[in-house]
């Protein structure tokens, strides 16, 4: 990118730009609507976006390795269905059913990883296939019927509060810190970047390329599974079509967050800021009286505009 002075670089870094955009958006939206900029609303927005948020974290890593995971929404649906079936039909205690369904989600993610690393199938093709397959398993196992009537205690995950904040806020913070640290401060993280920058070179440097990729796709499975559970707890029912379309939401956040879709570049902070920006726009525009169909038009324009602006600033910085 730009080889200019450090300070200018910092100012023009993608994350800084997103932070400024977020601040400006918050300011404008709070002027447009009185109810937008309240702690209650902002916390509530975190609750509503937590599922996509968790997936976005893992998707950031996947995309930095130069990969992609289109099966996230299907894995979320599968783990939600397994939770319901294991608890209601197989009679497992709910915590055990939850852990088992998370395990199944991790296995589904690892399955993607194996197809990608062992059989050298490009990630887009592999996860396009498993996207249909995992959704199909969810529909088949459940016979497309929903499971309802979970015990009240289970709803703490999706509707409850811990220390005065929605449970999801804590889960998201812990997950973001863990993933962020793993990416920026560990050998694992350095390998993730190395794979994305140049996989062949990474192999020649005897980095554990395949193992790291497996972990990354396994993590993506785990986060998808956890999102599935959070959604079940938030909406109190299980359906086999849960999580449809989440992959595009997560990918949008990651690329708006500055990750290169070709790998080698991206940050957790950028993805989180981008996600916050999108959710604020959705909520704020709605509160300002823009309808959902108009909102998605504006978000589309915003996505293109933000990247265009970023490119422009890169060029200015490069001068």
């Amino acid at each position: 990118m730009s080889p200019t002075s450090g300070r200018l670089n910092l100012l023009l870094s993608h994350e800084a730009m997103l932070a400024i955009l977020l601040a400006v958006t918050l300011l404008i939206l709070s002027l447009l609507s009185d109810s937008f900029f309240s702690t209650a609303n902002l916390l509530n927005q975190v609750r509503l976006t937590a599922e996509i948020g968790l997936i976005t974290l893992a998707m950031t890593l996947v995309i930095i390795t130069g990969g992609i995971d289109l099966s996230v929404g299907s894995i979320a649906g599968l783990s939600a269905i397994m939770l319901g079936l294991l608890w209601q039909k197989a009679g497992l205690p709910l915590p055990l059913a939850a852990v088992t369904s998370l395990g199944i989600a991790v296995l589904a993610g690892l399955g993607n990883g194996v197809i990608i690393t062992r059989f050298r199938v490009p990630p887009l093709i592999a996860t396009l296939a498993t996207m249909a397959f995992y959704r199909g398993l969810a529909e088949g196992f459940s016979q497309s019927r929903s499971v309802r009537g979970y015990p009240e205690g289970f709803y703490i995950l999706g509707q409850g509060e811990v220390l005065g904040l929605p449970t999801q806020v804590w889960i998201l913070i812990v997950a973001a810190v863990l993933v962020g640290t793993a990416l920026s401060a560990t050998a694992f993280g350095r390998t993730v970047f190395a794979i994305g920058a140049n996989e062949t070179a990474a192999r020649f440097s005897s980095l554990p390329v395949d193992r790291v990729k497996l972990i990354v796709y396994g993590l993506s499975g785990f986060m998808s599974g956890l999102s599935g559970l959070l959604l079940v707890s938030r909406v109190t029912t299980t359906r086999s079509d849960m999580g449809m379309g989440w992959e595009l939401d997560a990918i949008t956040a990651v690329v708006l967050g500055g990750a290169s879709i070709f790998g080698g570049r991206g940050t957790v902070l950028g993805s989180v800021l981008a996600l916050a920006l999108i959710q604020c726009l959705k909520s704020g525009l709605s509160l300002a009286g823009v309808k959902a169909d108009g909102t998605i038009v504006l978000i589309g324009l915003f996505l293109i505009g933000a990247v265009l602006l970023g490119n422009l600033m890169d060029r200015i910085a490069a001068r």
Partner: peptide
């Protein structure tokens, strides 16, 4: 005002925003 696809999460988000409003 409703979702552009018959999608439960989007519908919930829209309702939630109107409650806030």
């Amino acid at each position: 005002d409703g979702p552009t696809e018959a999608n439960i999460d989007d519908q919930i988000t829209i309702l939630d925003n109107y409650i806030t409003q």
